[in-house]
Nucleic acid binder design. Sequence first.
DNA 1: GTTTTCCTGTAACAATGGTTACATCCTACG
DNA 2: CGTAGGATGTAACCATTGTTACAGGAAAAC
Lengths: 222, 222
Amino acid sequence: MNTYSAPLPDEKVQLLRQRYQALFESDLLDEIVQVGTYRSVPKDHIILDIGDLIAFMPLVLNGSIKILREDEHNHELLLYYLEFGDTCAMTLNCCMRKAKSQIRATTEQDTELIMVPVEKMEAWVVTYPSWRTYVFDSYNIRLNEMLEAIDTLAFMNMEERLLRYLRDKALINQSEQLQTTHQEIANDLHTSRVVVSRILKKLEREHKIQLHRNMISIPELL
Amino acid sequence: MNTYSAPLPDEKVQLLRQRYQALFESDLLDEIVQVGTYRSVPKDHIILDIGDLIAFMPLVLNGSIKILREDEHNHELLLYYLEFGDTCAMTLNCCMRKAKSQIRATTEQDTELIMVPVEKMEAWVVTYPSWRTYVFDSYNIRLNEMLEAIDTLAFMNMEERLLRYLRDKALINQSEQLQTTHQEIANDLHTSRVVVSRILKKLEREHKIQLHRNMISIPELL
DNA sequence: GTTTTCCTGTAACAATGGTTACATCCTACG
DNA sequence: CGTAGGATGTAACCATTGTTACAGGAAAAC
């Protein structure tokens, strides 16, 4: 699977209609089909990087996306995930004011997107009540997720943050077997590999998780 | 000065028009005058608490407001300030879905507000382009401020956080003499008084600030 | 004026998390 | 099979932040 972008092929139109008919009125779906393009991105690729100008807002069809923040020394921090039904409020952000992206978006899994040109966004807010609701809901959900990220950083210690991370990752990947390394976890949590290994080992001794090479199993946590 | 709420008195209509005529078209200002109520809140009062249901969104005329998050053990964390021209995106949040407030809002200074019933918000987004711009800009500014709060927590140490806090507080109060105690600072930064005193003393030894009882002077920082 | 309360300074110590260093082990690839 | 590179385990140590305790001083209350 390679990164791929094109006008909407018929089978993806079907997929869009099927997944979004509950959210959007059919006139709006028709418009999205008219102006949207299809994009397919394999796991672990960057969709949007810090500093990029944004011309499209994404609607997620399949897969999931990690939204990351980065400091001046290229250390990352996971903010939240996007999945089916979500769009990126930070994208909304940039669209409206032609600003640059403040965040990085990478694929957590193979992911299919519909890209909508940003000019449509504001127009549709006036025209389509369902789009208005969707945009406002997206902002609200994202604000709440940012609040959760802040709670996590301000009020929780590393063990609690790690447990929450494992749970979230299991939910987004719909599996209690997490394919990842200690180093990747350390990057997402903005800490060091040694710290992650130390805490993971403690959790294993407490029978909360099982550790394997490139995989962590968390049956007890869900 | 006591907390006070009433239909818009004439002189406050003048104030509203003067302060917001650059942002809103005059038809919209007329509507705000029709449906808005005036509220005056003295320094250090709670305007909105966690769990409150929200019926109004505030437009700030004068003064400034602190937005705080709280953990399960009543420890606070300052998220950002609101001042003239701002409204509360977390309020927008709650309005739209009749949810409860996730944050606490307290006055940093004596503050005057116009309260707009939340039902108007969505209607005006369709009717008034200037309101639409204002609402989206508010969301975007708030999202960026949440991002900054996250950066601060994830990437900065306590000394840097404290310096930034002092600067922000001086700017919002338009004074390099900050009327506050070490304990209040500790509450806003979610740390302990001893830690704040220790770092403040260090900054004073480095001639970056001067310490007094109930007051900190920061001429060098602005 | 005296008492009480609040604010600040500081020492000593604990706890958490970050760093360095190194050993071991697994797997991919010649 | 043998080696190289990546992943993990662990010890020892350091730095930062949080906690407890207490003393002295200023302001407010009486």
